[in-house]
Simulated scan of single mutants.
Amino acid sequence: MFGDMMNMMGKLKETQKKVEETKKRLDTVLVDESSNDGKLKITLTANRTIKSIEMADELLEDKEQLEDYLILTLNKAIEKATKVNEAELAAVAKEGMPNIPGMDLFK
């Protein structure tokens, strides 16, 4: 029984290390999102750090319109990046979790 606990602890530490490595790797995974008409393009990492914002010059002429574009497009980009982030981290966590009866959280 003690050996099983040591094995589980080792597996958990290994999984924790893989999760940290995955988080670092997600800093290099880029997610692009554009407004429906292509006037605004946002790129962020899967860890939800904004890397670039490109916009048509005409958006600079109307503050309210620019704000609306930014809100809508940023929210879509963050949602997309969050899905990538959660899927990647869940896959690593599921792969490394020991088989503990009743603890099937990632199925």
Rank of each mutant, 00 (worst) to 15 (best):
K18C: 12
I53W: 01
E95A: 15
K11M: 14
E86C: 04
V31F: 00
G96T: 08
K23Q: 15
N99P: 05
E14Y: 06
K23R: 09
V84N: 00
L89P: 09
D37N: 12
K51D: 01
I50T: 07
T82F: 11
L30I: 15
T22M: 13
K18G: 10
N85Q: 12
T49K: 12
S52V: 03
A91E: 15
E95I: 05
F106M: 11
M8Y: 15
K51I: 10
T43R: 07
M6N: 12
S34P: 02
K80W: 01
A56M: 00
S35G: 11
M103K: 13
M5V: 15
D4T: 14
N85I: 02
M6I: 15
I78F: 14
L40F: 03
A87R: 11
V84W: 01
K83P: 05
A93H: 09
D4Y: 11
E86N: 13
E14V: 09
A77E: 04
K51Q: 11
I50G: 00
V31K: 04
E95Y: 07
Q16N: 13
M97L: 13
L30C: 00
L66K: 08
A46R: 00
G3Q: 12
K76N: 13
E64K: 14
D68V: 03
D104S: 10
K23N: 06
M8A: 14
D57C: 06
D32M: 01
A93Y: 06
T49C: 03
E61A: 12
L26W: 02
N47H: 02
L30A: 04
E86T: 10
Q16S: 14
Y69R: 02
M9K: 09
